[in-house]
Design a protein around this nucleic acid. Structure first.
Lengths: 235, 235
DNA sequence: TTCGAATTTATTGTTATCAATTTATATATT
DNA sequence: AATATATAAATTGATAACAATAAATTCGAA
């Protein structure tokens, strides 16, 4: 009762709690609920999640290694804020690497992963039709992650996953808030079809065009409010 | 006097101590003194370096994020051991990315970085001539790191640096111990010259050939002894 | 008011102790 | 001798108290 670590009952392994902190912060960033330079004090988070500071620190460490937050010595973690220059470089790097991943993946997809990819595309389409934008954002992310998973070169696939997440964060920061666009219904489907057809070059072109479309829609002038952590993270 | 944290005098900020632990373990791995699966208990390291376990843990965390060691829950950190398959994928990914970095860097090198690169090449040549293999290994690593630094796309440059380190570790693990080869005097020089000439395509080709030469010289059968940490890390 | 210094508060860093888990060792059993 | 089991040692994980640093606030002077 006396400390933040006296669990109330529902609890779980600290491992899972750490993952939960990581996920909810990541989620909040991707859905534009947490924006650049928002501070994330350890004590605040440990109270919100009712865990020890140690757990919070590990979660923040993971978030930092994924470029979601930035850690500075003796200072609170803050949500990362990639500038316009870094964002352009992120997109350029991702185009180059995702295109190569498409070439290597085309024709190398087994039935199970093919079905998984088609399922994501369908769910994404559905979420868009229903106007559930938060879901659509995560499904869009998952689509690209699934493709990266299918890349036979696992090293390249992992690098690509990092870039997918980082560009998604940049998009969340710079697209005008709540904007339903940044989505063309046919983009993901045509990438997937080219892959299934075994046409790596066409898939690579489609992926690059898709990324160009996204990058064009960013507005680097968009700058933002400050918010209350608890209301966002516990929601 | 009673604890490992009562410094004996020379000491320094924990920040520097952490960096020192990181560097010496990294050094030992690159020079084949520490090999795959060697365990690195926190208490052992904290005694060797006369620091708190917390510092050791942070250092191990950095080593893990650089793929130099692997962390498993409730188990000691161990030196990473990329298998033949992962090593091949590392080389393939590095070839693709380093080639692109060469294309982007060619013709974009200012005088100061050019001089720095030429200096490394000269030092490397000297170290090879004198037979100081440990120095040569680090200078070879630094040569590629300098090129990666010069890449105008910093995101791509950072990804490349990660791959350079990981491939170097794989080389350390799989080249026959003490082998003086894995070095062709002209390789680095011809890459540098192509870059200075502004011929990105030639630089990319030279880099790929260089990597192919290295990869061809690996022996995946090489497997190794167990050793005493203190004698290696304090030396 | 506005700027700057001093003070207080908030926050992270460090360290020690105890608990939980894994690894190593010894013992018994077939 | 080989294998399984129990025991002990080594090792990491969790927690709490304290120290050091940064951020926010107050208060005074221009």
């Amino acid at each position: 009762m006396t400390t933040a670590t006296a669990r109330t009952g529902e609890s779980g392994r600290t491992e899972d709690l750490e993952a939960q902190i990581y996920s909810s912060i990541r989620h909040a960033v991707l859905t534009q609920q947490l924006t650049s330079d928002t501070r994330l004090p350890e004590l605040t988070l440990s109270k919100i999640y009712d865990v020890n500071r140690t757990v919070v620190r590990r979660a923040l460490g993971r978030l930092a290694s994924d470029h979601i937050v930035v850690l500075r010595r003796n200072q609170s973690a803050v949500i990362a804020s990639p500038g316009p220059d870094e964002t352009m470089q992120l997109f350029a790097a991702r185009r180059h690497i995702e295109a190569e991943a498409m070439r290597q993946t085309a024709g190398n997809i087994d039935n199970k992963t093919r079905e998984a990819i088609e399922k994501v595309v369908a769910e994404e389409h559905h979420a868009h039709a229903e106007g559930v934008h938060d879901d659509r954002i995560h499904l869009s992310l998952r689509f690209h992650e699934r493709l990266a998973d299918a890349c036979p070169n696992r090293v390249l696939g992992q690098i690509l996953q990092d870039l997918i997440l980082r560009t998604s964060i940049a998009v969340a920061l710079y697209k005008v808030p709540g904007m339903a666009a940044c989505y063309r219904a046919t983009d993901h489907r045509s990438i997937a079809e080219a892959l299934f057809d075994g046409d790596g070059e066409r898939a690579a072109r489609a992926a690059c065009e898709h990324l160009n479309y996204l990058e064009d829609r960013l507005n680097y002038a968009t700058r933002i409010r400050r918010v209350d952590l608890a209301t966002i993270l516990t929601g």
